[in-house]
Amino acid sequence: MPKVSMKVNGKAVSGEVEGRTLLAQFLREGLRLTGTHIGCDTSQCGACVVHMNGVPVKSCAVFALDAEGAEIRTIEGMANADGSLSVIQQAFQDHHALQCGFCTPGMVMSAAALLAENPRPTEAEVRKYLEGNICRCTGCHNIVKAVLAASGQDVAAIAAE
């Protein structure tokens, strides 16, 4: 079987895979990084979003072998170095932006990609950017609020509504 090597959350890893092994499978089954979830098979739900060389990708729509040599970041690599929640993660908890938690890793990874690209997005920009992530629990209200809060914007007015 072919071998693949990459860096995941700063750590060099490698493993044997099949041609058809997806990056999401390699992370979940090969590395036991089960925070990356698989919620659909048409690359739409976004539960599997990770960062590949600094940009968001759907890891269920990338072959592991195509990630050869790549830098991958997953939800397991998002907390601060001391283990405390990052600003985005903390905002998600503070604003109740998750319920069942299944879409959450992908939402956090997409939110982080958005804020890296656009540090102070408008509400409309946040909603548009998250179109590739489906959440069935929250109605998205608190997710949008959390992302705005994580960008340093005042969301008190939204809270009052």
């Binding site: 759907k58 990338v62 950017y129 590739g132």
Partner: peptide, 9 residues
């Protein structure tokens, strides 16, 4: 086209 993650690939 698609969404941000799709556009990355």
């Amino acid at each position: 086209i698609g969404d941000p993650a799709v556009r990355s690939r």
